[in-house]
């Protein structure tokens, strides 16, 4: 067994991690509205806390 096998498995684990992150991001609706959040993040500090609540 060479270290190459371990590296291949490790690289796959990393890749699967990204795949899961992608699926999660689609499921949580991040691609449904790609404009409003860009405006929302520019609102003032006090409102940002509000926004946190509403995003959940």
């Amino acid at each position: 067994m060479s270290v190459v096998f371990i590296l291949i498995v490790a690289s796959l684990i990393v890749a699967v991690g990204f795949l899961i992150a992608f699926i999660w991001s689609v499921k949580s609706g991040q691609y449904e509205d790609d404009y409003t959040p860009s405006v929302r993040m520019l609102f003032d500090e006090e409102n940002k806390q509000n926004q946190h609540k509403t995003n959940k």
Partner: peptide, 19 residues
């Protein structure tokens, strides 16, 4: 998105601007 301040009973409101 601040409708909850205008009317009690509203928990949150979220806008989809493009739609």
């Amino acid at each position: 998105e601040h409708l909850n301040k205008l009317q009690p009973g509203i928990i949150k409101s979220q806008v989809d601007f493009l739609k």
